[in-house]
Write a protein that binds this DNA or RNA. Sequence first.
RNA 1: GGUGGGGUGACCGAGUGGCUAAUGGUAGCAGACUGUAAAUCUGCCGGGCUCUGCCCUACGUAGGUUCGAAUCCUACCCCCACCA
Length: 380
Amino acid sequence: MTYTVEGTEGAARAGTLTLPHGDVQTPAFMPVGTHGVVRGLHPTELRRAGAQIILANTYHLHLRPGEAEVRAMGGLHRFTTWDRPMLTDSGGFQVFSLEGLRTISENGVTFQSHIDGSYRTITPESSMEIQWALGADIAMQFDHVVPGQAPHELACEGMERSLRWLDRGRARHAELADAGTSGSGTSQTLWPIIQGGTHADLRRRSAEGIGERGPWTGIAIGGLSVGEPKPVMHRVLEELAPVLPSHVPRYLMGVGFPADLLEGIARGVDLFDCVAATRNGRHGTAWVPDGRVNVKGAGLRSDPGPLDPECDCETCTTFSRAYLRHLFFAEDMLGLRLVSIHNIRFLIRLAEQARAHILDGSFDGWSREWLRRHYAKGVT
RNA sequence: GGUGGGGUGACCGAGUGGCUAAUGGUAGCAGACUGUAAAUCUGCCGGGCUCUGCCCUACGUAGGUUCGAAUCCUACCCCCACCA
Protein backbone atom coordinates (compact mmCIF):
# COMPACT_ATOMS: atom_id res chain seq x y z
CA MET A 1 0.00 0.00 0.00
CA THR A 2 1.61 3.15 -1.21
CA TYR A 3 0.68 6.71 -1.94
CA THR A 4 2.52 8.76 -4.49
CA VAL A 5 1.95 12.48 -4.79
CA GLU A 6 2.22 13.34 -8.47
CA GLY A 7 1.52 17.01 -8.34
CA THR A 8 0.58 19.86 -6.06
CA GLU A 9 -0.75 23.35 -6.44
CA GLY A 10 -0.70 25.30 -3.22
CA ALA A 11 -2.15 22.94 -0.64
CA ALA A 12 -4.00 20.90 -3.27
CA ARG A 13 -2.54 17.56 -4.22
CA ALA A 14 -2.95 14.93 -6.91
CA GLY A 15 -1.67 11.43 -6.29
CA THR A 16 -2.15 7.72 -6.67
CA LEU A 17 -3.02 5.38 -3.83
CA THR A 18 -2.20 1.75 -4.49
CA LEU A 19 -4.32 -0.80 -2.65
CA PRO A 20 -4.68 -4.60 -2.85
CA HIS A 21 -7.63 -4.34 -5.21
CA GLY A 22 -6.28 -1.56 -7.39
CA ASP A 23 -5.23 2.06 -7.64
CA VAL A 24 -7.12 5.15 -6.60
CA GLN A 25 -6.23 8.38 -8.32
CA THR A 26 -6.75 11.34 -6.05
CA PRO A 27 -8.47 13.60 -5.31
CA ALA A 28 -11.34 11.10 -5.35
CA PHE A 29 -14.91 10.80 -4.21
CA MET A 30 -15.90 7.45 -2.73
CA PRO A 31 -19.58 6.48 -3.00
CA VAL A 32 -21.09 5.11 0.17
CA GLY A 33 -22.49 1.59 0.19
CA THR A 34 -23.39 1.16 3.84
CA HIS A 35 -25.06 -2.23 3.52
CA GLY A 36 -22.66 -3.51 0.93
CA VAL A 37 -24.57 -1.75 -1.81
CA VAL A 38 -24.52 1.83 -3.01
CA ARG A 39 -28.27 2.20 -2.66
CA GLY A 40 -30.02 1.23 -5.82
CA LEU A 41 -26.94 0.97 -8.01
CA HIS A 42 -25.44 -1.94 -9.87
CA PRO A 43 -21.65 -2.35 -9.64
CA THR A 44 -21.51 -1.88 -13.39
CA GLU A 45 -23.24 1.46 -13.05
CA LEU A 46 -20.71 2.50 -10.42
CA ARG A 47 -17.83 1.53 -12.67
CA ARG A 48 -19.33 3.49 -15.53
CA ALA A 49 -19.66 6.46 -13.20
CA GLY A 50 -15.93 6.18 -12.58
CA ALA A 51 -16.04 4.95 -8.98
CA GLN A 52 -12.59 3.75 -7.98
CA ILE A 53 -13.38 2.78 -4.41
CA ILE A 54 -16.54 2.47 -2.36
CA LEU A 55 -17.39 2.24 1.33
CA ALA A 56 -19.32 -0.21 3.44
CA ASN A 57 -20.25 -0.04 7.09
CA THR A 58 -19.10 -2.23 9.96
CA TYR A 59 -22.07 -1.72 12.26
CA HIS A 60 -24.74 -2.25 9.63
CA LEU A 61 -23.09 -5.30 8.10
CA HIS A 62 -22.52 -6.72 11.56
CA LEU A 63 -26.25 -6.49 12.21
CA ARG A 64 -27.16 -7.86 8.80
CA PRO A 65 -26.09 -10.23 7.41
CA GLY A 66 -23.24 -10.56 9.93
CA GLU A 67 -19.52 -10.62 9.23
CA ALA A 68 -19.33 -14.41 9.52
CA GLU A 69 -21.79 -14.77 6.65
CA VAL A 70 -19.84 -12.29 4.55
CA ARG A 71 -16.60 -14.07 5.27
CA ALA A 72 -18.18 -17.40 4.38
CA MET A 73 -19.17 -15.90 1.05
CA GLY A 74 -15.56 -15.05 0.35
CA GLY A 75 -15.42 -11.59 1.87
CA LEU A 76 -17.05 -8.31 0.95
CA HIS A 77 -15.54 -8.10 -2.52
CA ARG A 78 -16.73 -11.48 -3.69
CA PHE A 79 -20.03 -11.15 -1.83
CA THR A 80 -20.85 -7.87 -3.54
CA THR A 81 -18.90 -8.56 -6.77
CA TRP A 82 -17.22 -5.20 -6.39
CA ASP A 83 -13.64 -6.01 -7.35
CA ARG A 84 -12.07 -2.59 -6.93
CA PRO A 85 -10.84 -1.16 -3.63
CA MET A 86 -13.18 -0.88 -0.68
CA LEU A 87 -13.08 0.85 2.67
CA THR A 88 -15.15 -0.01 5.71
CA ASP A 89 -16.19 2.57 8.24
CA SER A 90 -15.80 1.37 11.78
CA GLY A 91 -19.18 2.11 13.33
CA GLY A 92 -17.82 5.27 14.90
CA PHE A 93 -20.20 7.43 12.93
CA GLN A 94 -23.13 5.49 14.40
CA VAL A 95 -21.97 6.66 17.84
CA PHE A 96 -23.04 10.06 16.55
CA SER A 97 -25.93 9.25 14.21
CA LEU A 98 -27.62 6.70 16.46
CA GLU A 99 -27.19 8.80 19.59
CA GLY A 100 -30.58 7.86 20.97
CA LEU A 101 -29.93 4.15 20.58
CA ARG A 102 -26.55 3.75 22.23
CA THR A 103 -24.61 4.13 25.45
CA ILE A 104 -20.89 4.82 25.54
CA SER A 105 -18.40 3.44 27.99
CA GLU A 106 -14.63 3.28 27.93
CA ASN A 107 -14.89 -0.33 26.85
CA GLY A 108 -17.01 0.44 23.82
CA VAL A 109 -20.47 1.41 22.65
CA THR A 110 -23.64 -0.60 23.19
CA PHE A 111 -26.23 -0.06 20.47
CA GLN A 112 -29.80 -1.20 20.54
CA SER A 113 -30.44 -2.64 17.10
CA HIS A 114 -33.11 -0.79 15.14
CA ILE A 115 -33.80 -4.11 13.41
CA ASP A 116 -34.74 -6.37 16.31
CA GLY A 117 -34.09 -4.37 19.48
CA SER A 118 -31.18 -6.55 20.58
CA TYR A 119 -28.19 -4.97 22.28
CA ARG A 120 -24.88 -5.11 20.42
CA THR A 121 -21.66 -3.83 21.88
CA ILE A 122 -18.97 -2.63 19.51
CA THR A 123 -15.51 -2.21 20.96
CA PRO A 124 -12.34 -0.96 19.30
CA GLU A 125 -11.29 -4.60 19.12
CA SER A 126 -14.55 -6.05 17.82
CA SER A 127 -14.77 -3.33 15.17
CA MET A 128 -11.39 -4.56 13.90
CA GLU A 129 -12.52 -8.17 14.02
CA ILE A 130 -15.63 -7.37 12.00
CA GLN A 131 -13.70 -5.31 9.48
CA TRP A 132 -11.04 -7.98 9.16
CA ALA A 133 -13.71 -10.55 8.41
CA LEU A 134 -15.31 -8.25 5.85
CA GLY A 135 -11.90 -7.82 4.26
CA ALA A 136 -11.96 -4.34 2.78
CA ASP A 137 -8.67 -2.80 1.62
CA ILE A 138 -8.91 -0.11 4.27
CA ALA A 139 -10.30 -0.43 7.80
CA MET A 140 -11.10 2.61 9.88
CA GLN A 141 -10.42 2.89 13.57
CA PHE A 142 -13.42 2.82 15.90
CA ASP A 143 -13.76 6.42 17.04
CA HIS A 144 -16.00 8.55 19.23
CA VAL A 145 -17.73 11.16 17.05
CA VAL A 146 -19.32 14.11 18.84
CA PRO A 147 -21.69 16.74 17.38
CA GLY A 148 -20.21 19.73 15.58
CA GLN A 149 -21.35 22.14 18.26
CA ALA A 150 -19.85 20.01 21.06
CA PRO A 151 -18.21 22.13 23.76
CA HIS A 152 -14.51 21.77 24.46
CA GLU A 153 -14.97 19.31 27.30
CA LEU A 154 -17.05 16.84 25.29
CA ALA A 155 -14.92 17.23 22.17
CA CYS A 156 -11.84 16.57 24.30
CA GLU A 157 -13.40 13.46 25.79
CA GLY A 158 -14.23 12.14 22.32
CA MET A 159 -10.80 12.98 20.97
CA GLU A 160 -8.85 11.42 23.84
CA ARG A 161 -11.05 8.34 23.86
CA SER A 162 -10.54 7.98 20.11
CA LEU A 163 -6.78 7.96 20.68
CA ARG A 164 -7.06 5.27 23.36
CA TRP A 165 -9.38 3.28 21.12
CA LEU A 166 -6.91 3.67 18.28
CA ASP A 167 -4.23 1.94 20.37
CA ARG A 168 -6.55 -0.90 21.27
CA GLY A 169 -7.83 -1.28 17.73
CA ARG A 170 -4.39 -1.22 16.21
CA ALA A 171 -3.14 -3.89 18.61
CA ARG A 172 -6.05 -6.16 17.74
CA HIS A 173 -5.68 -5.49 14.03
CA ALA A 174 -2.00 -6.47 14.22
CA GLU A 175 -2.90 -9.70 15.99
CA LEU A 176 -5.45 -10.54 13.33
CA ALA A 177 -2.97 -9.80 10.56
CA ASP A 178 -0.38 -12.05 12.23
CA ALA A 179 -2.86 -14.86 12.69
CA GLY A 180 -4.17 -15.15 9.13
CA THR A 181 -5.74 -13.46 6.17
CA SER A 182 -8.68 -11.14 6.00
CA GLY A 183 -12.09 -12.15 4.77
CA SER A 184 -11.13 -11.32 1.21
CA GLY A 185 -7.80 -13.13 1.43
CA THR A 186 -5.79 -9.96 0.91
CA SER A 187 -4.03 -7.54 3.18
CA GLN A 188 -5.83 -4.68 4.93
CA THR A 189 -4.52 -1.42 6.25
CA LEU A 190 -5.84 0.55 9.23
CA TRP A 191 -6.36 4.27 9.17
CA PRO A 192 -6.64 6.49 12.24
CA ILE A 193 -9.14 9.33 12.59
CA ILE A 194 -8.42 12.81 13.84
CA GLN A 195 -11.11 14.13 16.19
CA GLY A 196 -11.37 17.22 18.36
CA GLY A 197 -14.52 18.93 17.12
CA THR A 198 -14.11 22.56 16.19
CA HIS A 199 -11.36 23.22 18.72
CA ALA A 200 -7.93 24.00 17.29
CA ASP A 201 -5.95 22.80 20.30
CA LEU A 202 -7.81 19.47 20.37
CA ARG A 203 -7.40 18.92 16.65
CA ARG A 204 -3.70 19.59 16.92
CA ARG A 205 -3.30 17.24 19.88
CA SER A 206 -5.25 14.56 18.02
CA ALA A 207 -3.09 14.90 14.92
CA GLU A 208 0.09 14.86 17.02
CA GLY A 209 -1.05 11.84 18.98
CA ILE A 210 -1.78 10.00 15.77
CA GLY A 211 1.53 11.12 14.28
CA GLU A 212 3.44 9.74 17.26
CA ARG A 213 1.77 6.39 16.72
CA GLY A 214 2.63 6.26 13.02
CA PRO A 215 3.54 5.66 10.38
CA TRP A 216 0.14 5.28 8.73
CA THR A 217 -0.84 4.56 5.14
CA GLY A 218 -3.63 7.11 5.40
CA ILE A 219 -5.07 9.54 7.92
CA ALA A 220 -8.70 10.52 8.23
CA ILE A 221 -10.26 13.70 9.49
CA GLY A 222 -13.52 12.89 11.23
CA GLY A 223 -16.17 14.77 13.11
CA LEU A 224 -16.73 17.45 10.49
CA SER A 225 -19.93 18.29 8.64
CA VAL A 226 -21.80 17.22 11.72
CA GLY A 227 -23.56 20.50 12.40
CA GLU A 228 -20.74 23.05 12.55
CA PRO A 229 -20.77 26.08 10.20
CA LYS A 230 -18.93 25.64 6.93
CA PRO A 231 -16.23 28.27 7.59
CA VAL A 232 -15.40 26.40 10.78
CA MET A 233 -14.79 23.21 8.82
CA HIS A 234 -12.53 25.14 6.45
CA ARG A 235 -10.62 26.63 9.37
CA VAL A 236 -10.09 23.20 10.94
CA LEU A 237 -8.75 21.87 7.64
CA GLU A 238 -6.40 24.82 7.32
CA GLU A 239 -5.11 24.35 10.85
CA LEU A 240 -4.58 20.65 10.24
CA ALA A 241 -2.82 20.80 6.86
CA PRO A 242 0.61 21.84 8.16
CA VAL A 243 0.73 19.18 10.87
CA LEU A 244 -0.15 16.25 8.61
CA PRO A 245 2.52 14.20 6.82
CA SER A 246 2.60 15.23 3.16
CA HIS A 247 3.16 11.75 1.74
CA VAL A 248 0.07 10.22 3.36
CA PRO A 249 -3.42 10.44 1.84
CA ARG A 250 -5.90 12.55 3.77
CA TYR A 251 -9.48 11.42 3.97
CA LEU A 252 -12.16 13.90 5.02
CA MET A 253 -14.91 11.66 6.28
CA GLY A 254 -18.54 12.23 5.40
CA VAL A 255 -17.95 15.17 3.08
CA GLY A 256 -19.57 16.31 1.01
CA PHE A 257 -21.52 18.44 -1.31
CA PRO A 258 -19.88 19.53 -4.59
CA ALA A 259 -18.55 22.78 -3.22
CA ASP A 260 -17.20 20.98 -0.16
CA LEU A 261 -15.03 18.82 -2.39
CA LEU A 262 -13.36 21.81 -4.00
CA GLU A 263 -13.01 23.61 -0.68
CA GLY A 264 -11.48 20.47 0.81
CA ILE A 265 -9.16 19.79 -2.11
CA ALA A 266 -7.93 23.37 -1.91
CA ARG A 267 -7.00 22.64 1.70
CA GLY A 268 -5.12 19.43 1.00
CA VAL A 269 -7.78 16.73 1.20
CA ASP A 270 -7.37 13.71 -1.07
CA LEU A 271 -10.37 11.50 -0.35
CA PHE A 272 -14.03 12.14 0.34
CA ASP A 273 -17.15 10.13 0.91
CA CYS A 274 -20.73 11.25 1.40
CA VAL A 275 -24.23 9.80 1.32
CA ALA A 276 -25.69 13.02 -0.05
CA ALA A 277 -25.19 12.01 -3.67
CA THR A 278 -27.43 8.98 -3.35
CA ARG A 279 -29.77 10.31 -0.69
CA ASN A 280 -30.39 13.54 -2.57
CA GLY A 281 -30.76 11.47 -5.70
CA ARG A 282 -33.51 9.41 -4.12
CA HIS A 283 -35.12 12.56 -2.78
CA GLY A 284 -35.16 14.24 -6.17
CA THR A 285 -32.35 16.79 -5.89
CA ALA A 286 -29.74 16.75 -8.64
CA TRP A 287 -26.48 18.65 -8.56
CA VAL A 288 -25.61 20.67 -11.63
CA PRO A 289 -22.86 23.23 -12.29
CA ASP A 290 -25.35 26.07 -11.78
CA GLY A 291 -26.45 24.74 -8.41
CA ARG A 292 -29.22 22.22 -8.04
CA VAL A 293 -32.26 20.99 -9.90
CA ASN A 294 -35.41 19.91 -8.10
CA VAL A 295 -36.28 16.94 -10.30
CA LYS A 296 -39.89 17.05 -9.07
CA GLY A 297 -40.20 20.74 -9.91
CA ALA A 298 -43.14 21.89 -12.01
CA GLY A 299 -40.77 23.63 -14.40
CA LEU A 300 -39.47 20.31 -15.71
CA ARG A 301 -42.89 19.07 -16.76
CA SER A 302 -42.15 19.43 -20.46
CA ASP A 303 -38.40 20.03 -20.43
CA PRO A 304 -36.84 17.87 -23.16
CA GLY A 305 -33.27 18.65 -22.17
CA PRO A 306 -30.86 16.59 -20.07
CA LEU A 307 -30.59 17.02 -16.32
CA ASP A 308 -27.13 18.52 -16.74
CA PRO A 309 -26.11 19.35 -20.32
CA GLU A 310 -22.44 19.26 -19.34
CA CYS A 311 -22.60 15.80 -17.76
CA ASP A 312 -21.47 12.58 -19.43
CA CYS A 313 -23.37 10.18 -17.16
CA GLU A 314 -25.82 7.49 -18.29
CA THR A 315 -28.74 9.55 -17.04
CA CYS A 316 -27.83 12.81 -18.72
CA THR A 317 -26.86 11.24 -22.03
CA THR A 318 -30.06 9.21 -22.22
CA PHE A 319 -33.09 10.75 -20.53
CA SER A 320 -34.96 14.05 -20.56
CA ARG A 321 -35.77 16.11 -17.51
CA ALA A 322 -39.46 15.65 -18.23
CA TYR A 323 -39.09 11.87 -18.14
CA LEU A 324 -37.07 11.95 -14.93
CA ARG A 325 -39.76 14.10 -13.35
CA HIS A 326 -42.38 11.67 -14.55
CA LEU A 327 -40.51 8.76 -12.98
CA PHE A 328 -40.59 10.51 -9.61
CA PHE A 329 -44.30 11.21 -9.87
CA ALA A 330 -44.93 7.65 -10.98
CA GLU A 331 -42.91 6.63 -7.91
CA ASP A 332 -40.83 4.28 -9.97
CA MET A 333 -37.49 3.14 -8.59
CA LEU A 334 -35.77 3.95 -11.88
CA GLY A 335 -36.06 7.65 -11.15
CA LEU A 336 -34.31 7.28 -7.81
CA ARG A 337 -31.56 5.28 -9.45
CA LEU A 338 -31.04 7.61 -12.39
CA VAL A 339 -30.65 10.73 -10.29
CA SER A 340 -28.37 8.86 -7.89
CA ILE A 341 -26.22 7.83 -10.83
CA HIS A 342 -26.01 11.42 -11.99
CA ASN A 343 -25.09 12.79 -8.57
CA ILE A 344 -22.42 10.12 -8.08
CA ARG A 345 -20.96 10.82 -11.48
CA PHE A 346 -21.16 14.56 -10.82
CA LEU A 347 -18.94 14.31 -7.73
CA ILE A 348 -16.55 11.80 -9.26
CA ARG A 349 -16.18 13.92 -12.35
CA LEU A 350 -15.65 17.01 -10.23
CA ALA A 351 -12.79 15.24 -8.46
CA GLU A 352 -11.40 14.08 -11.83
CA GLN A 353 -11.49 17.64 -13.13
CA ALA A 354 -9.83 18.92 -9.98
CA ARG A 355 -7.08 16.34 -10.39
CA ALA A 356 -6.44 17.35 -13.98
CA HIS A 357 -6.30 21.03 -13.04
CA ILE A 358 -3.91 20.37 -10.16
CA LEU A 359 -1.62 18.46 -12.48
CA ASP A 360 -1.52 21.27 -15.02
CA GLY A 361 -1.35 24.01 -12.42
CA SER A 362 -4.74 25.57 -13.10
CA PHE A 363 -6.69 24.34 -10.10
CA ASP A 364 -6.86 27.58 -8.17
CA GLY A 365 -8.40 29.70 -10.90
CA TRP A 366 -10.64 26.93 -12.15
CA SER A 367 -12.06 26.08 -8.74
CA ARG A 368 -12.68 29.72 -7.88
CA GLU A 369 -14.64 30.16 -11.08
CA TRP A 370 -16.48 26.88 -10.56
CA LEU A 371 -17.52 27.86 -7.04
CA ARG A 372 -18.55 31.35 -8.15
CA ARG A 373 -20.84 29.88 -10.76
CA HIS A 374 -22.18 27.17 -8.47
CA TYR A 375 -23.01 29.62 -5.71
CA ALA A 376 -24.38 32.28 -8.04
CA LYS A 377 -27.98 31.19 -7.66
CA GLY A 378 -27.97 30.98 -3.91
CA VAL A 379 -27.05 27.33 -3.57
CA THR A 380 -25.22 26.22 -0.47
C1' G B 1 -95.17 11.63 -13.31
C1' G B 2 -94.41 9.45 -8.04
C1' U B 3 -91.28 8.01 -3.82
C1' G B 4 -86.60 7.90 -1.54
C1' G B 5 -81.40 9.40 -1.40
C1' G B 6 -77.90 13.12 -2.66
C1' G B 7 -75.33 17.91 -4.46
C1' U B 8 -68.97 20.63 0.46
C1' G B 9 -62.78 23.83 -1.61
C1' A B 10 -58.57 20.56 -8.12
C1' C B 11 -60.58 15.23 -6.80
C1' C B 12 -62.57 11.85 -3.02
C1' G B 13 -64.88 12.72 1.44
C1' A B 14 -66.09 14.42 7.01
C1' G B 15 -69.07 17.89 9.23
C1' U B 16 -75.86 18.45 10.71
C1' G B 17 -76.99 25.99 14.47
C1' G B 18 -71.67 29.35 17.12
C1' C B 19 -65.05 26.33 18.87
C1' U B 20 -65.66 26.41 10.44
C1' A B 21 -61.79 29.34 5.55
C1' A B 22 -64.37 24.43 6.95
C1' U B 23 -61.45 17.10 9.82
C1' G B 24 -59.11 13.31 6.69
C1' G B 25 -57.09 11.45 2.29
C1' U B 26 -55.41 12.24 -2.75
C1' A B 27 -53.44 15.45 -6.27
C1' G B 28 -50.24 19.88 -6.29
C1' C B 29 -46.14 23.55 -4.66
C1' A B 30 -41.70 24.35 -1.98
C1' G B 31 -37.73 23.37 1.64
C1' A B 32 -34.35 20.08 4.25
C1' C B 33 -30.78 16.14 3.68
C1' U B 34 -22.89 15.75 4.39
C1' G B 35 -18.14 8.51 7.55
C1' U B 36 -27.12 6.27 5.60
C1' A B 37 -32.52 3.67 11.21
C1' A B 38 -34.03 8.28 5.38
C1' A B 39 -37.46 5.95 -2.09
C1' U B 40 -37.41 10.05 4.26
C1' C B 41 -38.85 14.37 6.97
C1' U B 42 -40.94 19.44 7.26
C1' G B 43 -43.90 23.49 5.57
C1' C B 44 -47.70 25.47 2.22
C1' C B 45 -52.11 24.32 -0.26
C1' G B 46 -59.83 29.94 -1.73
C1' G B 47 -58.26 35.31 -2.79
C1' G B 48 -56.08 39.94 -1.16
C1' C B 49 -53.39 43.09 2.27
C1' U B 50 -50.05 47.79 5.75
C1' C B 51 -49.45 39.53 6.93
C1' U B 52 -47.68 37.07 14.97
C1' G B 53 -53.08 40.23 12.41
C1' C B 54 -56.99 42.11 9.11
C1' C B 55 -60.46 42.18 4.93
C1' C B 56 -63.15 39.76 1.12
C1' U B 57 -65.46 35.38 -1.21
C1' A B 58 -67.05 30.41 -0.16
C1' C B 59 -70.33 24.37 1.30
C1' G B 60 -75.90 23.45 -6.20
C1' U B 61 -79.12 28.41 -7.10
C1' A B 62 -82.46 32.06 -4.95
C1' G B 63 -84.96 33.56 -0.78
C1' G B 64 -86.21 32.97 4.50
C1' U B 65 -85.77 31.85 10.06
C1' U B 66 -81.96 33.27 13.74
C1' C B 67 -77.87 37.59 17.58
C1' G B 68 -75.42 33.71 14.50
C1' A B 69 -76.44 28.75 9.05
C1' A B 70 -72.45 24.26 5.17
C1' U B 71 -75.79 22.78 9.09
C1' C B 72 -83.06 24.65 10.06
C1' C B 73 -87.37 26.24 6.44
C1' U B 74 -89.35 27.31 1.22
C1' A B 75 -88.89 27.24 -4.03
C1' C B 76 -86.12 25.97 -8.12
C1' C B 77 -82.02 23.35 -10.83
C1' C B 78 -79.10 18.94 -11.30
C1' C B 79 -77.55 13.67 -10.14
C1' C B 80 -78.70 8.51 -8.44
C1' A B 81 -82.13 4.40 -7.16
C1' C B 82 -86.79 2.25 -7.27
C1' C B 83 -91.95 2.57 -8.85
C1' A B 84 -95.36 4.06 -12.96
